[in-house]
Write a protein that binds this DNA or RNA. Structure first.
Lengths: 255, 255
DNA sequence: ATACATAGTGTATTTTTTACACTAAGAAAA
DNA sequence: TTTTCTTAGTGTAAAAAATACACTATGTAT
């Protein structure tokens, strides 16, 4: 395999490491809820098709490729998404990651060394659905968003990976203002509150939420309002990136 | 490499994966401070010796070995430590992880495929120094504790790994009562406070700290006191494991 | 007997969190 | 054009948590 050169916008990869992969858990948010980006795999030259064959975008990394870069490259190759901040979450190495017949067929169709145990490192990102468009390419036939409450059985151990990442997301949102990555440039406080409620899976008091968010200092109140909504239009806010960075420290510390 | 069988108390490993390793960052605490366990490497049959050649305990994982198990096995093989809760922290994949001449010599002496980029997954544990004794074995000539403030240049990217783990430790101690893993079975509140101050690198108010810790509910006040100390003996406490588990949730949440 | 070192204790003030219900503004329907 | 519907937006009082702060207690060593 070393010798095989793969070109992409993200550099040339000389040879794929058959033992290491990355998988990307991309969260997006719109009015219907919190979603994850899933691809449908093509089974190469095989004349096989499966219904509901969904997986996280992911693939082998290069022999000398930084995993962080592999995640960026592979996400781009499979979904066209780029300029996204991907954060490493966890590395999964269960030898029985490949147990479903579908997965074995797929690996045989697409991998040069299909039978080895692959260690995969999961990356996570939060993006604003309005600002990005996912278009399938590579071995991805489709690339679509799925509500986190309605994720079907996925390839390999991808359900486990998604579950783990959701836990990490829930934990993070208590401590860091990460929600803003999922918002459009301009948003109302109700949209933001809705996001928090979706991620945490519980109701939040409106007045307390607003006081806390405005008090946090990383919101900029715009002189703009919603229009053409069948109710009182909400004032729009945007997000102060400078204050964001400095607020990534824990909010509530001993002394 | 597949075919080579490695036996250990922690199972038989059939063949080592030359692309993946684990490294263990083991924290211990005693009255002199917060320490990390480091080994000194033996250079196999080579007649080479280096001064101050220190590294984290770590090695290649098996082809079909769960990384979690590899960490447990390798820590045991190199230091004799066992029954320690190791937690995965991060995976490091920098292609220039191996840049120092010493490291290249060592890899050539000990590895079958010394030249490939190795992806390493770091594990972290907190232990009570009094309860464990580290004894070097395998390619470890020595296994000693080093104050985190005095860690010299280590092998590979191990300084980066230690730095990252310390950040994770600092963050965790704000949110979880992890400090107890580092304490002996019976401890005084001053010892615990000293630990917190060492990890966080700052002074904490004594009365507030005590109120908070006792109020947390996971301390058991013993009817025992220190003896033979040249000052008023401190009352001893132990740690309520049951309450510990349930308190692993964030302390300070929205609603 | 005294010096020394660390243990152990309480309170007032400020800040943060929580619980809670009505009015405002626009679009849509009648 | 009035009414209805839907979501936006607002304040306060009470409780809980965080903070700042200084002296007495009890043992060993001299």
């Amino acid at each position: 395999m070393p010798g095989l050169e793969i070109s992409s916008e993200y550099g040339n990869i000389v040879g794929l490491n058959p033992y290491n992969s990355v998988d990307c858990v991309i969260y997006g948010f719109d009015k219907t809820g919190l979603k994850v980006l899933l691809i449908e795999r093509s089974f190469g030259n095989l004349d096989v098709e499966f219904d509901d064959d969904l997986a996280l975008p992911g693939d082998l990394c290069g022999f000398d490729e930084l995993l962080d870069n592999a995640a960026i490259r592979i996400l781009y190759e499979l979904t066209g998404l780029k300029d996204i901040f991907l954060e490493q979450v966890h590395t999964f190495s269960n030898p029985s990651r490949v147990s479903k017949p579908k997965d074995k067929i797929w690996l045989n169709a697409i991998r040069e060394v299909p039978e080895v145990r692959v260690i995969t490192t999961a990356y996570m990102a939060l993006i604003n659905l309005e600002a990005y468009k996912a278009t399938p390419s590579g071995f991805a036939k489709k690339a679509d968003w799925h509500l986190i409450e309605e994720i079907p059985t996925l390839a390999f151990d991808h359900n486990e990976i998604v579950d783990h990442c959701i836990k990490v997301l829930r934990n993070k949102i208590y401590r860091e203002p990460i929600g803003f990555n999922l918002m459009p440039k301009k948003f109302s406080l109700s949209m933001l509150q809705n996001l928090y409620e979706r991620i945490l899976g519980k109701k939040i008091d409106k007045r307390n939420f607003r006081r806390k968010m405005i008090g946090s200092g990383f919101l900029i109140q715009l002189e703009e309002w919603q229009s053409n909504v069948a109710h009182k239009p909400a004032q729009l806010y945007s997000f102060d990136e400078n204050k964001f960075e400095s607020s990534k420290i824990p909010f509530n510390a001993i002394n």
